[in-house]
């Protein structure tokens, strides 16, 4: 029986922060290698999805990288404006991660298949 869970219930860390004054970077870090590989192999989080969520053209995405050593995905986007100048809404870009939290991930229960998250 297939089920879905929001990414915030699967990942250990979902965060955003400045990477210098012109970029913001977001990290999704998983609790286990199994969870990470399930997400990586499942192709649930893609550049195209990030582009849709943040309405940033795919070619403007600075990094979209799976980092096996940390069971993590890193996504770097341009800031809407240079940090800390007129119109700033988030000086440290610390609250820009929220759209990632509700990405829905299909998961299988114990009877349903190879991967079990809970």
């Amino acid at each position: 029986m297939a089920n879905t869970l929001p990414l915030k219930d699967i990942a250990k860390v979902i965060r955003s922060k400045n990477a210098g004054p012109f970029e913001m970077t977001m990290d999704i870090i998983f609790k286990s290698k199994d969870d990470y590989m399930m997400i990586k192999n499942g192709g649930y989080i893609t550049k195209e999805l990030i582009s849709r969520l943040y309405r940033v053209p795919v070619e403007k995405i600075i990094s979209f990288v799976y980092f096996d050593a940390a069971n993590a995905i890193k996504i770097t986007l341009p800031r809407p404006r240079p940090q800390g100048t007129i119109g700033e809404t988030d000086m440290h870009a610390a609250q820009q991660h929220v759209p990632l939290m509700n990405i829905m991930i299909p998961v299988k229960d114990k009877n349903g298949g190879d991967v079990c998250l809970r």
Partner: peptide
């Protein structure tokens, strides 16, 4: 291992 590996990501554009 996970806290140090994860820190490598912190405030960087690219993880590695």
């Amino acid at each position: 291992v996970s806290s140090v590996a994860a820190h490598t990501l912190y405030e960087k554009s690219h993880p590695y």
